[in-house]
Design a protein around this nucleic acid. Structure first.
Length: 490
RNA sequence: CGGGGUAUAGCGCAGUUGGCUAGCGUAUCUGCUUUGGGAGCAGAGGGUCGUCAGUUCGAGUCUGACUACCCCGACCA
């Protein structure tokens, strides 16, 4: 039957199952690879949303919403854009159903055919720039800094839960600027916001870089990305920020008059992260006991489990639990008290480890007598007995500890799995082991394609801020100034 | 769309050269004993064996077609 992931990833399936499942659509349905995000998975997404939203507000952005349906004609306006998305679009052709004459169910009413087909958005550049056209006349109208939280549909040939679903949730920022410099600055600003979010909140170290021409977003002049390394040695693109130049402004005829009174095309950026980040979180941190969530993204920080033999004992222990819960909540943490008598303590321990709750507290009769609690941290699985008087401070510090420890662990993993190679032979061996591989590349699309063809490895990015070093392309031997990052990717 | 594989209880699986009442683990429900790491015992419920056709006295098992899913490629956040 349906298995979510394979080989090493098979281990992840039961944890995925807590967060998300494959949508159970009707048999014969041609909709494939849609996901149901379960409450716990959605709670993680909400946490990501609120954190990102705050970061966007700080950088001056506002949220707005644009239509799900995009007229087909919008897509024909930017040639390279349609080239990139044409093969994976869902198209609405009719607007009405009717009862089938043979009495079996419903059929499409052929008389209700749309004049112009509608495309279910795979991304919103076209409809947004068609709208911006009416919003922008003067340099006084710029910049426009807008973000949208939405769902998009891409009819991929192959899907994979979380990492590549037919429909996914994301945020897409679309900005309009008066100058190239300002747009470029915005592009860089937002990729840095993503990097900060990934590292400080998700605990996932990322490499910021630019994409090669072949990996670039359809319609962009330059694409910047953050690349993360998963525990199975494969790379995952965790976020992108595109410098769109004047491509969309020209395609949708968006001009403004500058201070000198001359008409100019507007400069554009777009940037986004998606529910794929939940997949990144799982695959970057999980261990054999399940998920490991960094405190800053965990929907629940602390779970308290009372341990008791009978109702009388429970009532005594519960008072202590409730009191502790309140104090922890006052210190800014989200706390769950699990006093269900339908499951045994051992069952609950395993359950919350599976869910990745950062800290678990157990309180039993002997703790009441000793005025202690047992604190277990998820990242190291260590247990400590702490005096109840010092518990709040202890747990507050523990949260910070866990957050940095998770990041450091992932960073160490990445460092141990980043290799530098000087020859193509070395490269071929290294790529089989997985990880990031730094190598010189001559900058040509032919060489890039050859490497991909022969090793399935792609150039993840050209790291930003790396200094020029003299070297020779590992394949052609031509002079090269930059080492780029290769990996097999999701 | 090409190549390979799978389809039997909610989930994971077994089912012999066709043989009569389709099984195991787990989960679920009931009762008692348990409760500091996914408890034990006893009992119960749950399946038109993916769909349609064919061969046969008889099909989960053999044949054909269809469908869905999984893996590998092409595509991709």
């Amino acid at each position: 039957m349906a298995k979510v992931l394979t080989s090493k990833e098979e281990n992840y399936s039961q944890w995925y199952n807590d967060l998300v499942t494959k949508a159970d659509l009707a048999e014969n349905s041609s909709v494939r690879g849609c996901m149901v995000i379960k409450p716990y998975g959605y709670a993680i997404w909400e946490k990501m949303q609120s954190t990102l939203d705050q970061m966007f507000k700080k950088t001056g952005h506002s949220n707005a919403y644009f239509p799900l349906f995009i007229p087909k004609s919008f897509f024909s306006k930017e040639a390279s854009h349609v080239e990139g998305f044409a093969k994976e679009c869902a198209i609405v052709t009719h607007y009405r159903l009717k009862n089938s004459p043979d009495g079996k169910g419903v059929i499409v009413d052929e008389t209700a055919k749309l004049e112009e087909e509608l495309i279910v958005r795979p991304t919103s550049e076209t409809i947004i720039w068609n709208t911006y056209k009416n919003w922008i006349q003067s340099y006084r109208d710029l910049p426009i800094l807008i973000n949208q939280w939405a769902n998009v549909v891409r009819w991929e040939m192959r899907t994979r839960l979380f990492l590549r679903t037919a429909e996914f949730l994301w945020q897409e920022g679309h900005t309009a600027h008066a100058s190239k410099e300002e747009a470029l600055e915005e592009t860089m600003k937002m990729i840095n916001v993503y990097a900060e979010f990934a590292e400080k909140h998700l605990g996932i170290p990322v490499i910021i870089g630019s994409k090669t021409e072949s990996e670039r977003f359809a319609g962009a002049l330059d694409t910047f990305c953050i690349e993360a390394l998963m525990q199975d040695g494969k790379a995952l693109q965790a976020g992108t920020s595109h410098f769109l130049g004047q491509n969309f402004a020209k395609a949708f005829d968006v001009k403004y008059s500058n201070k000198e009174g001359q008409l100019e095309h507007v400069w554009a950026t777009s940037w986004g992260v998606s529910t794929r980040l939940i997949g990144a979180l799982i695959m970057a941190h999980s261990d054999n006991n399940g998920l490991v969530l960094p405190p800053k993204i965990a929907p629940i920080h602390v779970v308290i489990i009372p341990i008791y033999k009978n109702n009388e004992e429970l009532n005594r222990i519960l008072d202590t639990c409730k009191d502790l819960k309140e104090k922890l909540e006052n210190s800014g943490l989200t706390v769950k008290l699990d006093d269900r008598d339908t499951h045994k303590p051992g069952w609950k321990f395993a359950e919350y480890e599976l869910k990745g709750i950062p800290v678990r507290i157990a309180i039993g009769q002997r703790d009441i007598e000793n005025k202690t609690i047992e604190v277990a941290r998820r990242d190291t699985l260590e247990k400590t007995t702490v005096s109840i008087d010092t518990a709040i401070d202890f747990i507050g510090n523990l949260m910070k500890d866990i957050q940095t420890n998770i990041y450091n662990k992932a960073l160490t993993f990445r460092n141990n799995n980043t290799f530098e190679v000087n020859s193509y032979d070395e490269f071929k061996i290294a790529i089989e082991k997985g990880g990031f591989i730094k190598a010189f590349w001559d900058g040509s699309a032919e060489t890039e394609a050859k490497i991909k063809e022969e090793t399935k490895a792609t150039i993840r990015c050209i790291p930003l801020g790396s200094k020029d070093i003299e070297g020779k392309c590992m394949v052609t031997g031509k002079p090269s100034k930059k080492q780029v990052i290769f990996a097999r990717a999701y």
